[in-house]
């Protein structure tokens, strides 16, 4: 691999942009195709498909074998609420390879002391989430129990087609959330919300609930192809 290609590949990842490295397995010839340039590439269809699946692999085209190194942006977890569950969830998710950010406008909660080694932003979600740039490679966990904080984040996460949207709260709380969603004209997305949040592992403590949430996030990431709802409908 040429060093300039390796550098470019790493740069695209840092910028959270998808890219595919194409290697001709017969002669070692390589090129890097950025997401924005895929449509102009001779292998456009194959690159597009692989990127949607988020899987590297070998393809054949015109009598040649190519290996496609697919680089989707690293999965990211944004937890809304610098609460007790988040204190357990943040290090666990980090260990599992997620890029973790905590957002909570309440400055008493959102402190670096409570969240060492994790990015904590003491700001309202509707201000900071557009700056963070939500995408299909982002998971959102709503953990505040407070509609003033959770709801704006929920609406933005649904709009951005985040691969996982989970919301803490009882069935009753979620019922009220769905009513507010309907009032905002977003009922069509209701089925995408994981609520009550987390896999049913009988979790009791904050750390156990964090395990159940992380398990559900991994399930959403690995069992469902990361593709657009629009594509799926087509």
């Amino acid at each position: 691999m040429r060093l300039d290609l390796l550098t470019a590949l790493n740069e695209e990842r840092k910028a959270r942009r998808a890219a595919v490295l194409v290697t001709d397995l017969a002669d070692g010839d390589q090129r890097l195709v950025r997401a924005a340039d895929i449509q102009r590439d001779p292998l456009a269809d194959a690159l597009d498909e692989r990127l949607r699946m988020g899987k590297s692999g070998t393809i054949e085209s015109g009598g040649k074998r190519y290996f496609l190194t697919v680089q989707a942006p690293p999965a990211r977890l944004i937890a809304i609420g610098a609460v007790h569950i988040s204190q357990a969830l943040a290090p666990m998710a980090k260990l599992a390879g997620f890029d973790v950010t905590i957002v909570d406008p309440r400055t008493a909660f959102a402190t670096p002391e409570r969240f060492p080694d994790v990015r904590v932003i003491a700001e309202w979600p509707d201000k900071v989430l557009p700056e963070l740039g939500l995408d299909r490679y982002t998971a959102i966990a709503l953990l505040t129990h407070d509609p003033k904080i959770d709801d704006p984040a929920l609406n933005l996460a649904l709009e951005a087609e985040c691969f996982y949207v989970g919301a803490l709260g009882s069935r009753k709380t979620h019922g009220k959330r769905l009513e507010r969603l309907a009032a905002a004209g977003l009922s069509a997305h209701a089925a995408r919300i994981h609520a009550p949040i987390g896999l049913d592992v009988g979790a009791v403590s904050p750390a156990e609930i964090a395990v159940s949430i992380l398990g559900e996030i991994v399930l959403s990431l690995r069992k469902k192809p990361l593709r657009s709802e629009k594509d799926r409908a087509a």
Partner: peptide
Amino acid sequence: MLTTDEDILAKAEDWRKEGKAVAIATVVD
């Protein structure tokens, strides 16, 4: 912590830029 394949490629770039000779092995099938 080096946990993902992406972190590993970043390390390959660092090593090369430090002047070391580097190879990358990839599972292709």
